[in-house]
Computed example of a mutant assay.
Amino acid sequence: MVSLNVKPRGRPLRGLPESIEVDLSTATTSEIYSKIAAHTRLDQNRLRITKGSDGSVLSQKHQDGKLVTVEETGLREGSQIFVKDLGPQIAWRTVFLVEYLGPLLIHPLFLGPLRPYLYSASAFNPMSYLPAAINPTTSGVIPPPSQTQQLVCALIFLHFLKREYETIFVHRFSSATMPAFNIFKNSAHYWVLSGFNLAYWLYVPSGVMSASWWPKALEPATNQAVLYGSIALFFFSEFSNYLTHVTLRNLRPSGSTKRSIPRGYGFNLVTCPNYLFETMAWGAITVLAGGNFSAILFLAVAAGQMAVWAKKKERRYRKEFGSAYKKKSSMFPFLW
C-alpha cells in the first residue's frame, strides 16, 4: 500500500481527504477516482486528477480500452496529486440529442400549427414592416404553404431525424461528458440559426422562397431539372454522410479511445468527407430554397465551421500518424 497526498486544484473541495491509500501492485487509476468521488460525493466525470510532478492528467484507460494501473503512472509513496472540480457535467449523447431536437420540432411547427400566429399582421411580426408588394400578410389572408416549402421542410426534418438516429445508434464518443452549461452555447447554432431563423424566412406565406437575385430559370418551382436534381443530390449526400459515420464508428471498438486513420468511401479523397457531404446536402436545400438569404447564411456558417474543424483534424492526423498519413485535402477536394 502507498499513500498519496491529495490537494485541491483551485477552490477547496468539501470532503476532500488529505491523503488516500492504494495498492501499488494491483490498483488502477479508476480506483483513485472512485475514492476521491466517494469522499467528495461528486460524480467521477466532473473530477480531473493530475500528477503533482508534471501536471499530466491521470487517464483511466489506455487507447485500447484497458485500465491504467497506478504503477504505470509513476506514482509512488508520498506522491502528490491535485483534484479539480470541473463543475456539473452532461453526457455528450444527451447534448447532441438536445441540439438536433430544436430544428426537428421548429420547422414542422412553423410550417403548420404556428403559421397563422407567426405571419399574421402584428407589431411583433417582422413581415409587418415590409412593403405591401412583398408582404402577403397585409391582406389578412395567409396562403397555405407552397409545395416547395413543404418539400424543404420535409428534407430538413429528415436531415435532423437522421442525426438523432446516428446519435443514438451510430456515434461513439471519446469523452463521456462535457460541462453542462455548454449545452446552451452548443444548442444556439441549431435552435437559433437552423431553427428559428431558417424556418421563419423559409416559410414566409408568399409561397415563393426565391431571393430577388436568384435566376428565374433556376427556380425549382418552374425548373424540373433543378427540382429533381437537388432532391437527388440531397439524398446522395445524406446517405454518403451516413456511410462515413459508420466508417468512423467501426474504427473505434466499444470502450476504446484508440484512433486510426480512416480509409474507404470518401476518406481516400478528403480528410473529413462527412463534412463535405453535409455541406453538399445543405447546398441542395439552399438551391431548393431559391437562394433564400437565411439558407445561405446557415450554409456559410456551417460550412465555415466544418472547414475549420476539418483542418484541425488533418493537422492532428499528420502529427499523430506522421508519414503514414498521406497528403490530401481536408474537406473540399483540391481546394481546402
Results as ranks from 00 to 15, higher is better:
residue 1 M to V: 12
residue 2 V to H: 05
residue 5 N to C: 06
residue 6 V to Q: 01
residue 8 P to V: 01
residue 8 P to G: 07
residue 10 G to W: 10
residue 11 R to T: 11
residue 12 P to E: 10
residue 20 I to S: 00
residue 20 I to R: 07
residue 21 E to T: 15
residue 33 Y to Q: 09
residue 41 R to L: 05
residue 44 Q to T: 09
residue 47 L to A: 13
residue 48 R to C: 14
residue 61 K to I: 14
residue 67 L to K: 13
residue 74 G to D: 08
residue 74 G to E: 08
residue 75 L to M: 09
residue 75 L to H: 10
residue 78 G to T: 12
residue 81 I to V: 11
residue 82 F to K: 06
residue 83 V to W: 10
residue 93 R to P: 11
residue 93 R to T: 10
residue 94 T to W: 02
residue 95 V to I: 15
residue 100 Y to R: 03
residue 104 L to G: 06
residue 106 I to N: 00
residue 109 L to C: 08
residue 113 P to H: 09
residue 113 P to Q: 06
residue 115 R to Y: 15
residue 115 R to V: 14
residue 115 R to N: 13
residue 121 A to N: 13
residue 123 A to V: 11
residue 125 N to Q: 10
residue 129 Y to S: 14
residue 129 Y to W: 15
residue 136 P to M: 00
residue 137 T to C: 14
residue 140 G to P: 04
residue 143 P to D: 06
residue 144 P to R: 01
residue 144 P to I: 05
residue 147 Q to A: 07
residue 153 C to F: 04
residue 154 A to H: 13
residue 157 F to Y: 02
residue 157 F to N: 05
residue 160 F to S: 04
residue 162 K to M: 03
residue 165 Y to P: 05
residue 167 T to N: 01
residue 173 F to P: 06
residue 177 T to A: 09
residue 179 P to G: 08
residue 182 N to M: 15
residue 184 F to G: 08
residue 186 N to Q: 13
residue 186 N to R: 09
residue 187 S to Y: 11
residue 188 A to P: 13
residue 190 Y to S: 02
residue 192 V to K: 13
residue 195 G to Q: 01
residue 197 N to P: 06
residue 202 L to Y: 02
residue 204 V to W: 12
residue 204 V to G: 10
residue 210 S to D: 06
residue 212 S to M: 11
residue 212 S to K: 14
residue 213 W to N: 08
residue 214 W to K: 00
residue 215 P to H: 04
residue 218 L to C: 01
residue 219 E to M: 05
residue 221 A to T: 15
residue 222 T to F: 12
residue 227 L to G: 11
residue 233 L to N: 00
residue 233 L to M: 05
residue 237 S to I: 01
residue 241 N to R: 05
residue 243 L to A: 11
residue 247 T to K: 02
residue 248 L to P: 07
residue 255 G to N: 01
residue 255 G to Q: 07
residue 258 K to V: 05
residue 263 R to G: 09
residue 265 Y to I: 07
residue 270 V to H: 03
residue 270 V to Q: 01
residue 270 V to W: 06
residue 280 M to G: 04
residue 281 A to P: 06
residue 285 I to T: 04
residue 289 A to G: 11
residue 290 G to E: 04
residue 294 S to Q: 02
residue 300 A to D: 03
residue 300 A to Q: 06
residue 302 A to K: 03
residue 304 G to L: 03
residue 315 R to W: 06
residue 318 R to I: 02
residue 319 K to E: 15
residue 319 K to T: 13
residue 319 K to G: 11
residue 320 E to W: 02
residue 321 F to A: 10
residue 325 Y to K: 00
residue 330 S to V: 00
residue 331 M to L: 12
